[in-house]
């Protein structure tokens, strides 16, 4: 592998209780991802791609196996340690944007920096840089309900990227967007991946997204079906 590994997954299994029985969403997953990868988990609904993304994002824990993200064992983190990992190193992009509706574009993008206690002047500079990357500097005072879907997702990307995280996790980021907006968003992410060397991990079944991925991990019924790497 040409990249140093920042995610190491060994024999990961994840089960959810369902009444007295349990449902196994992931079985025996073993994967490594290196710095700067632009990769995705591909599969139909119920294949376990979002569950895998959530575990990597320390929002969930493995039932068995080991998941190391930037050297942190996800299963062994306390709530505070997991929150710190997310706060300092991870960026999230969601299908339905998950922007804070009563906050302006500027405030939404500023949010991760507030948690990291950056000074106001530094925050302003970083937010404006992030909005520059996604082409939304003219919308800083708008609120999410006043934006289009594409603009909302670009705000979400700016929010995920503003602190220059090591890893960005994007769960179906184009599911609510039309083709033109999807390509626009994806090109922005490719550009950020190349310029900042940020690792992007997607969960998707959208062909438009799949077309941009340089590594495609196909999941089927919670297991790896195929792992393909494409040259840049």
């Amino acid at each position: 592998m040409e990249h140093p590994p920042i995610i190491q997954i060994e024999h990961l299994t994840k089960s959810f209780p369902m009444g007295k029985a349990s449902f196994t969403a992931l079985t025996g997953i073993s994967l490594n991802f290196g710095k700067g990868e632009f990769a995705g988990f591909i599969g139909p609904s119920g294949s376990g791609k979002t569950t895998l993304l959530n575990i990597i994002g320390s929002l969930d824990v493995p039932t068995s196996g080991e998941v190391l993200v930037l050297g942190n064992s996800i299963g062994g983190l306390t709530a505070r340690q997991a929150a710190r990992l997310r706060k300092e190193n991870l960026g999230f992009i969601f299908q339905s944007y998950n922007l804070l509706a009563v906050h302006t574009v500027f405030e939404n993008v500023e949010f991760p920096l507030l948690l990291l206690n950056y000074a106001a002047s530094e925050r302003r500079r970083m937010v404006m840089d992030a909005l520059e990357w996604v082409g939304l500097t003219d919308k800083i005072k708008s609120k999410p309900p006043q934006l289009s879907g594409g603009e909302c997702q670009r705000v979400a990307i700016a929010r995920a990227m503003v602190k220059k995280p090591s890893l960005v996790l994007a769960d179906e980021p184009t599911a609510n967007l039309d083709a033109a907006n999807s390509h626009n968003i994806l090109q922005t992410m490719v550009k950020l991946n190349r310029e900042l060397n940020t690792t992007f991990l997607f969960a998707t079944h959208d062909d438009k997204v799949i077309g941009y991925l340089r590594r495609k991990v196909y999941l089927l019924d919670g297991k790896i079906d195929k792992d393909e790497v494409f040259p840049n």
Partner: peptide
Amino acid sequence: QKEIGTYVALGYTQRE
């Protein structure tokens, strides 16, 4: 609820 989940994803603990 989504907002609460977003706070957690962005780095808050649930207690926070």
